[in-house]
Design a protein around this nucleic acid. Structure first.
Length: 352
DNA sequence: ACTTCCTTCCGCCATT
DNA sequence: TTAATGGCGGAAGGAA
């Protein structure tokens, strides 16, 4: 969109240094997740400018993926030292041991400020590094029980796409990895960038749920009731006043059944879902339009500016005008390009 | 910030 | 018998 077209040569940093994401690919890695990260974080010109994804293994060289073909990793775990975000992809089976240098390296990088993301069985690897104790975590449903048995100190959320506990993200992996990556983009760069990434990846329509402290999203619902259509209508008519009764009528259900099915499908109540969707739209407008704050509240369906500010603050931790100045969540404002503490240069022993 | 009013949510149980 | 549905009412919490 700017005049500086991408160069055919290696992507060079323009301006700020990019946000380094290091994908850890262990033996038997689910390469789908590795590829999904590489694709999602470079889905648009803007994203490829903001993020750099590096794939590293326990050691250099070839490994066989869960999908059955071989790949070659050209970075060893020393690459972790430059990570702002470490993503541990899943493997075919949960790992029971890791090269001795890896767990301490993960732990140290986490202590050094890195965000840690683990997908599916990758959660076991993070557990071996000692990062899970007392944290809220999830994993692929098939391994949930095993995870709980292996790491008894965790607070397992077994039936969600992903869970955020502060700087630790754990996910079911597979297709849900995409949801998690888009959420990371949302937190780093705002709703508009996340929507672009999702659109570019041709993902299913955004499941609204972008609370920053959010934290969990229910497993995808069946698509055979009338409710997806009602939710779609809600999303395109956010400025309308809606009541549970009017929505239930739209779904041809009694109020009781409507609220019941709605919760079963989305994991939250009608009103909470609606507030979430309205805040998300407000974030988008604050980022990408010059409409006055007051007007944005109206456009998103908040009955008064007081309620707009209240719900906005509840969901994002900041107020609308402050958010406009610094998109992304206040927990990690404009992290991209920020320098890391001294840990950045830490030299790590390489497994032999 | 506080109160008052109103809507929503959801467990419980009867009905289909 | 089970699964889906609707009504009721108290508690929670949003609106004014």
């Amino acid at each position: 969109m700017r005049e500086d077209s991408d160069l055919a040569v290696a992507p060079q940093t323009v301006g700020k240094p990019p946000h380094n994401i290091v994908m850890l690919a262990l033996e038997g890695v689910r390469n789908f997740e590795v590829a999904a990260a590489c694709a999602t974080f470079s889905a648009t010109v803007e994203l490829s400018r903001q993020y750099r994804v590096t794939v590293c293994g326990e050691r250099l060289g070839p490994l066989i993926t869960a999908e059955g073909y071989g790949i070659e990793v050209s970075n060893d775990i020393s690459a972790l030292a430059r990570a702002y975000t470490v993503v541990v992809a899943g493997t075919k089976e949960p790992v029971s041991a890791l090269a001795s240098a890896l767990p301490p390296a993960l732990l140290e990088r986490h202590a050094g400020g890195a965000r840690v993301v683990a997908l599916g069985t990758g959660v076991f690897a993070v557990g071996l590094a000692g990062i899970l104790a007392g944290r809220r975590v999830t994993t692929h449903w098939r391994y949930a029980e095993s995870l709980q048995r292996t790491f008894t100190g965790i607070r397992l959320e077994p039936r969600v796409l992903f869970v955020q506990d502060g700087d630790l993200f754990t996910g079911a992996g597979g297709a849900a990895a995409l949801d998690l990556f888009v959420e990371l983009i949302c937190q780093d760069l705002g709703v508009a960038a996340a929507d672009d990434a999702a659109r570019s990846a041709v993902m299913a329509p955004a499941r609204p749920g972008g609370l920053p402290q959010f934290i969990e999203r229910p497993l995808p619902p069946r698509q055979d009731t009338g409710l997806p259509a009602v939710r779609a209508w809600m999303l395109t008519n956010l400025s309308e006043a809606m009541t549970v009764d009017s929505l239930a009528a739209r779904a041809f259900m009694s109020r009781r059944q409507f609220t019941r099915v709605f919760r079963a499908e989305t994991g939250t109540s009608v009103l909470q879902w609606l507030i979430q969707a309205r805040v998300r739209e407000a974030r988008r407008l604050l980022e990408s339009s010059d409409e006055p704050v007051e007007r944005i509240g109206q456009l998103c369906g908040f009955p008064t500016s007081a309620s707009f500010r209240m719900h906005f603050k509840n969901a994002t931790g900041s107020n609308p005008s402050a958010y406009r100045a610094v998109p992304g969540t206040p927990a990690r404002p404009a992290l991209i390009g920020r320098r890391f503490p001294e840990v950045e240069r830490t030299e790590l022993p390489v497994a032999s």
